[in-house]
Amino acid sequence: MKTLRDAAVGETVHVVKLHGEGAVKRRIMDMGLTKGTEVYVRKVAPLGDPVEVNLRGYELSIRKADAEMVEVK
């Protein structure tokens, strides 16, 4: 299973499914990371975490631990 965490910088991926539950999952979905969404991995923060992604025309910062919950292809 490939997750958003594994996606390389500069890669464009599509969301397959969200794992996990509760507050963090809902927050990720609320920010627009839902099934089928196209996500462009823009960069990794200087200290290696979090990552910056572009989706639905805006920039989002997400921690690697949370990005692991997002299954992509």
Partner: peptide, 11 residues
């Protein structure tokens, strides 16, 4: 309380 850190980076 939960502390999700999924944050917008505004223009």
């Amino acid at each position: 309380d939960p502390a999700p850190f999924v944050m917008e980076l505004p223009s």
